[in-house]
């Protein structure tokens, strides 16, 4: 291993070190001229410049953007329409029938995303909790088992989508297994409910390990002596779970749930590669709607896409604030101990 490190050091660090030495003289001069504040500015500048241009500025522009219409890309060339884009998104003649909405695609995407969030997050959290509880049973080869669940987390969404598209194909291995067991093959990705379930299942498959890992860390932080005390009192395992494990895991659990919600609201890439939003609009989700209205469709309407993204951003901000508040509460509790 040292060999590898030395080689890496020579290849990567040496030229960088040389560059850093080269920078030292002009920076010394700058330090003398501008003082410490000048150095602070120098250290902050690259990151904050990129951050301002590519994160903050878009955030601000987005609001202005959502109040304009037309196909022009740049803000000054666009026509101001006030809240018309939001009205267009939200107006329906009859709110019990989505097809009467002006932007029925948006409402369909909204409904799909809502259903997806509820089902996916529930199943994901249950599965992740079970997994974390099992991994916490002082198993041998824990790192191996952790790796088993964690493996799909690193795979790219495109790879995940394609792997499952191949498996769920009409002539794929899953149908072969069904036929082998004497059942009828299923058109997994071409029937609405199956495609929707597939999107849920595949995203759970891809992210289960991540959430299980955080919950496992929470479980491992529960003091062992609590369990020992319970055992000495002869407490039943079910009672131990409901009275010790679950309450003490709750803070972590809440954070994990909010994190899962934030992710689920933005669901896009795995589902997009898997089903492309189809069949029809069965798996059309909000992010895909924004992407298609903003960039992909023939009738591009960036203003409408911006308005939709602001509505989604609103939901995400609420969830984020919730998460920060929960995190702070946990921290305070931790300090009390």
């Amino acid at each position: 291993m040292t060999g590898v490190k030395e080689v890496l050091g020579a290849v990567v660090a040496a030229p960088l070190g040389w560059l850093a030495r080269l920078l030292d003289t002009p920076l010394r001069l700058w330090q003398r001229l501008a003082g410490q504040n000048g150095m602070v500015a120098f250290f902050l500048l690259p990151n904050m410049a990129i951050f301002t241009v590519f994160v903050l500025l878009p955030l601000v522009i987005n609001i202005a953007y959502s109040m304009t219409t037309g196909a022009a890309l740049f803000l000054p060339e666009r026509t101001y329409v006030g809240a018309a884009q939001f009205e267009r998104l939200l107006r329906c003649t009859d709110y019990t029938d989505l097809m009467t909405c002006q932007e029925d695609q948006f409402w369909i995407a909204l409904r799909n995303t809502g259903t997806f969030v509820v089902l996916q997050v529930t199943l994901l959290i249950v599965a992740a909790t079970i997994t974390a509880l099992i991994l916490n049973r002082a198993l041998r080869a824990l790192s191996f088992w952790r790796a088993v669940f964690f493996f799909p987390v690193l795979l790219s969404p495109v790879v995940v989508g394609l792997i499952w598209r191949w498996i769920l194909d009409r002539n794929g291995v899953l149908n072969a297994a069904l036929v082998g067991m004497g059942m009828d093959p299923v058109n997994w990705l071409l029937e609405r409910n199956y495609a929707f379930s597939a999107a849920i299942g595949v995203t759970i498959w891809a992210h289960l390990g991540f959430f299980a890992l955080i919950l496992l860390a929470g479980l491992q932080a529960i003091p062992r002596d609590l369990y020992e005390a319970a055992e000495m009192d002869g407490t039943k395992p079910a009672r131990v779970f409901w009275r010790i494990t679950l309450p003490l895991l709750m803070p972590n659990m809440l954070v994990v749930i909010v994190l899962a919600l934030i992710r689920a609201v933005q669901v896009f890439d795995e589902a997009y590669v898997l089903t492309g939003g189809g069949p029809g609009t069965a798996t059309l989700f909000l992010t895909q709607y924004i992407y298609e209205v903003g960039f992909a469709s023939l009738l591009k309407n960036p203003g409408l896409a911006a308005a939709a993204s602001i509505l989604m951003g609103g939901v995400l901000i609420v969830l984020t604030l919730l998460q920060l508040a929960l995190g702070r509460k946990n921290e305070r509790k931790g300090k009390l101990k």
Binding site: V53, F54, L59, I61, L73, F74, A305, G313
Partner: peptide, 28 residues
């Protein structure tokens, strides 16, 4: 202020700023 700003944007996902970001990237 800078620290708060950074933490506040921790959770701003790309999908929320797609359209304006595209116009900026296109502008440069």
């Amino acid at each position: 202020f800078v620290v708060v700003l950074i933490i506040a944007t921790l959770m701003i996902p790309l999908s929320v700023i797609l359209v304006p970001l595209y116009s900026i990237v296109s502008g440069v």
